[in-house]
Amino acid sequence: MIRQAIAVFYKDLASELRTRYAINALLMFVVVTLAVIMFALAGETMTPGALTGMLWVVMFFAAMSGLSRSFVAEEERGTTMTLQLLAKPMAVYLGKLIFNLVLVMALNLFIIALFLLTMDQFVVHQFGLFWLVMLLGSLGIASATTIIAAIIAKANTKGTLFPVLSFPVLLPLLMAGINATKIAVEDVRWDAAWPDLQLLGSYIVVITTVSFLLFDFVWKD
């Protein structure tokens, strides 16, 4: 099943590299969002805590505009049935999850790099903790949004529905992520973030398990 899943992931990746439907637009989305923030905050002194919030806002909206793509594309092109005939539901879910994981990590890496380059006031004191939180945050965002993307792909108003359905589910992750990032940025002791890291970890495990159990219902008509 893992091999099947990787093959599904490979298909999505090849398709994305071939068509470039999502990635170019997403990178531009990030650049535009950061530009808006920079213009809006020009000349303002921002605390690192406030900038942490900004960073997560950008990450959230970038995820909201990009991560529904892999399922919505299947539905829009009418290839859902083809994929159903090719692979087990679990393999499809896992493949899409890996794809979203790679996409969200690449996206967040790009966002963080731009953020660190352009926001002088954004100084990270504990880079180890910072990267760990970013990694767990990306994993969590991917695991929660993959099943929601599968749900909204079957609905009519896909674009608007995605953030509406995702936000309540993502909220605990966002709260813990922002809290832990603040700790990494504001140079408090590293073990202060321990409960948040535990929460991020268990969140990923629980949401992925629930998604695995429920994906069958969503995927089959």
Binding site: I147, I148, I151, K154, A155, L165, P168, V169, L171, P172, L173, M175, A176, N179, P195, D196, L199, S202, Y203, V206, I207, V210, S211, L214, F217, V218
Partner: peptide
Amino acid sequence: ATLSAVYSIIAAATVPFFIFIMPRI
């Protein structure tokens, strides 16, 4: 029916995290 049932289960699965995270924040 299927999708809304699945969504309510996923939403309910996040409840314990709220109970844990919110008093901290």
